[in-house]
Design a protein around this nucleic acid. Sequence first.
DNA 1: TCCATATCACCAATGATTGTTGTTTGACAA
DNA 2: TTGTCAAACAACAATCATTGGTGATATGGA
Lengths: 155, 155
Amino acid sequence: MRTPDELTDLFRASRRKVTAQRQCIFRILQGDETHPSAESVHAAASREMETISLKTVYQTLHDLAELGEIAALDVGTGMTRFDPNVDDPHHHLVCRRCGSIRDLVVDFPDLAVPKGADLGFEVGSAEVVFRGLCPSCRDGYRAPVPAVAAGSRRT
Amino acid sequence: MRTPDELTDLFRASRRKVTAQRQCIFRILQGDETHPSAESVHAAASREMETISLKTVYQTLHDLAELGEIAALDVGTGMTRFDPNVDDPHHHLVCRRCGSIRDLVVDFPDLAVPKGADLGFEVGSAEVVFRGLCPSCRDGYRAPVPAVAAGSRRT
DNA sequence: TCCATATCACCAATGATTGTTGTTTGACAA
DNA sequence: TTGTCAAACAACAATCATTGGTGATATGGA
């Protein structure tokens, strides 16, 4: 993701308006490696702007995703997670207890659909999700698992 | 997944009851390679049993997943998809237009988190999702995209 | 500064999934 | 076969993440 200032220009160039709320969200995402949900971003933004609405946060996150400045991930934690790191290709480690996500910047050279095995699919991209336990959860720390969508029961 | 008869025994052995509804679901899943959603299974079951409730379908699918007889997948199509093929390890091809899923039985030997790169994570499993267009969608066929969860807008 | 329009905050709606409740039914033993 | 009881059923309401209206406000180029 670019800097808040660059994003300001980018938004104006794409006929989008730059509001105080959006700049606040830009700043929050800047350097955030926690792969926050919309809700998390809203919580952080609310600390700076009491009245910012969740809808505004969703809107801005979608705009950023549309511009390719952040990536929207669905790794089965019940909420869409947003990843400001779109500059170097990477995969993800997902904690199956608390849902925390870490980037894994490793290239798997042979990760491609073998010729003839694609069943006619026109394959565009590959994502790898490693599931396991994050250091905290592995060490038996029982943090309250963040509220998770009704339907995201994992096995 | 085992045969309906074997599943009957397995359910009894695990103190679960075997009802007509459950056996109907066993039969529907048997050999199904479409990675159906709970809703799809319910639609198929309704053809045999008018009054079967969606809740019952969810319950049985969860039981089967708990027993390891089917796998619950979240590949970002907005609904949990269920995969009766748990016997040979495989990955998935997901159509980004219509959400159809195909198995890809290919082993990627170097697919592992390199030592030292795991950030303290205790990694248990790896899933690969290839995204692209299925043959129908690639050929320009514009099937009505199945209704998708509100929050599953993909970029 | 002014205007067209994007964005805001608030509230209601949506869709997948789960909780609740009162009734039915499978499993197992007498 | 029948009695018993917990498990499972169907119907309905609730939940959670996310999105759709709507009237008011603020942005950015002229």
